[in-house]
Design a binder for these strands. Structure first.
Lengths: 156, 156
DNA sequence: CGAGATTTGGCATAAATCACCTGTTTGAAA
DNA sequence: TTTCAAACAGGTGATTTATGCCAAATCTCG
């Protein structure tokens, strides 16, 4: 909703490549002096366009070798108080992303765990214990083609 | 593979919450003085545990209102030279994440675009033009429960 | 064209980064 | 257990960066 001009878009593109770039570097890249550049960044943060800054960790390197995409179906009456479902799924730290989707399933969740046995524990001790979960289908990631790629920002 | 101790894990957890936190802040949080803390961060970067730093942008706020999860099936002979498939999918900026998966599909891709008509253009002009793409199935995200959540790092 | 509002750029100061150095801890072998 | 070497934590200071302030430039309407 906020009107983003070419400077804002440029700043966001720079931060998508390297969110720890210094303000001076970003200012040079978008052809602005440091002062207004920093002011714009702070405005983007305050207005909610920028939600935060994250480190991109190599999952394999930290021992998280298994990514699974889980299609979750919920029972008919659980679909009515969807808020409780959201809260429950939000609280599971193994789920790194989760969307309510159209199609055959109700939710699609990305689950990141150490290995198959950790995934088994997650399923039996956590996901299947949630009330209202009627059916799940697991799609195992064999290989990551790309993850967390920069958004293709609409130009102004 | 590199041995990560509790300091490294603490640094990664801090950077997952705020990747622009200053080295001094991170050092305080993990109970280390700034010098060794910065040294560890640089080591994590050099060893590949840290792949980079990304800004978390609110998609709606920049006009990207539609997220679609696309299941892609490729023809039998395309499956053999999978490398070409990967390269082609990598090159599409609308795809923000893509995995080769088990199950009914061959690939699962997350596509982020402005709206339905932009998605139609993406499908007809780009994805369906790729050689070897035999079948696709689109699952539209109705609501994001969570995105880009921090990883649950194995403790040491 | 002109008044008002917004934004930019430069400056000064406080803070952070980072290379270098020193002292301590750790770990392996005798 | 003792010894030695390698690795690591912590301190210091020069350089770079962040950030508030203010005057000048730019943009926006009437």
């Amino acid at each position: 909703m906020p009107n983003l001009d070419k400077f804002d878009i440029g700043i966001l593109e720079a931060l998508q490549e390297d969110a720890r770039a210094t303000n001076v570097e970003i200012a040079e890249r978008v052809n602005l002096s440091p002062s207004p550049c920093l002011r714009r960044i702070r405005n983007l943060e305050k207005s909610g366009v920028i939600r935060g800054y994250r480190v991109d960790i190599d999952r394999k390197e930290v021992g998280l070798g298994l990514t699974v995409f889980v299609e979750i179906k919920v029972g008919q009456h659980s679909r009515e108080n969807a808020e409780a479902q959201h809260t429950a799924l939000l609280a599971l730290p193994e789920i790194t992303a989760c969307f309510m989707i159209s199609g055959t399933a109700d939710f699609l969740a990305e689950v990141v765990v150490e290995d198959l046995s950790a995934y088994e524990r997650f399923l039996t001790e956590k996901l299947l214990m949630l009330p209202g979960v009627a059916d799940i289908r697991s799609n195992f990631a064999i290989r990551a083609v790309k993850t967390g790629a920069p958004l293709k920002l609409p130009q102004r």
